[in-house]
Amino acid sequence: MEWTSYLAPLAQGAWVTAQLTVYSTILGGLFAFAFGLGKLSHNPLLKGFSVAYIEIFRGTSLLVQLFWIYFALPILGQAIGLDLRFPPVAAGVAALALNIGAYGAEVVRGAVQAVPREQYEAATALNFTGRKRLWRITLPQAIPEMMPTFGNLAVQNLKDTALVSLISLGDMAFRAEQIRNFTQDSVTVYTLVLFMYFGMALVVTACMKLLERYVGRWRAAGR
């Protein structure tokens, strides 16, 4: 078989990989903010829940999390009379997002805490409420600080999507495995896939850089 004939199925897989990456990165970003801020909360319940989430998802492997959500959760659901069967896409996005969210939460927490205390005091002196201080003063300064690490996490997430092929999701890694089984042409298939992942990583990096520049545009003013 011609190597060009691999391209169509691989492109299909790439589309699935791209979707998984985009959805799980966005959802993971939301988790990162929710639980990163939750960990900084003075409410012990919120704080405890956030810490537990972060530790559990950072302390276990993504593969196990994925299998747990896809295989174990439905059975547990059955036991308590709930339908917790998810389609592979949903299970994949959930596992990736929860995983990346746990790492991202630590980044959010760190960046928020790194905003100088003086900014907090200036906002208090101007009588901002706690909430407005967070949204208007602290986060706009913290978010640009998070962006480089978020960029790395997004690329990490792209690479991690390959794991979801193990719950028979037709992503790029899954398609590659299918073609290899059929043709035994490991070298060509995996070389192609290698470059395709690399190309996608470049795109993700470029997008994150643009976002980084956008959220931090005030820093560059007049420079």
Partner: peptide
């Protein structure tokens, strides 16, 4: 009350 700080403490993103 209003306060003026030694290090100004302006909001850098505004």
């Amino acid at each position: 009350m209003g306060m003026v700080f030694q290090q100004f403490n302006l909001f850098p993103h505004m």
